[in-house]
Each structure stands twice: as C-alpha cells, then as structure tokens.
Amino acid sequence: MRCEECSDKLDRYVDRELNDTEALQVQLHLEGCPDCMDHYEFEAHLKRLVKHSCDCDTAPKAFREKLRQILS
C-alpha cells in the first residue's frame, strides 16, 4: 500500500469502518511507515479530543426527573 492510499483510508480506519482486509492492509502499512503512523495517531487523538470536549454536557437532573414524570 502506498502512503497516498493509506491517507485516503485513514478516516475510515480511525472510525473503524474498513472491512477486515482493508483494515489489516492499513495496519501493516502503518507498522512500517512512521510518517503515516504519526498521521494516524494525530487523527485518532483529534477524534478523542472532539468527543471528550463535547460529551461532558449531560442533561440536568431536574430535567431528567421532569421527563420521567411526564412519561410515566
């Protein structure tokens, strides 16, 4: 696999959307290519950053209780 092809598939690799064969091809390329491995780790890091930055918002307790009463 060339670096360009790896780069094209990196989003889907990070999102675990490649089939097993494609994922293995990307994994093997990453293990032998430090530049692409750096890129992969950066994209994975960024995805975690977006998740952790946005998922700290939770529904207020009072709202949860209000909904529970409305729905019961």
Binding site: D55, A59, L67
Partner: peptide
C-alpha cells in the same frame, strides 16, 4: 428511552 437522554440532550 431515558437511558439515551444524555445523547439527545447533548
């Protein structure tokens, strides 16, 4: 349904 409240609220 309420177990998914945080996802919906976010």
């Amino acid at each position: 349904a309420l177990t998914h409240l945080d996802t919906l609220y976010r």
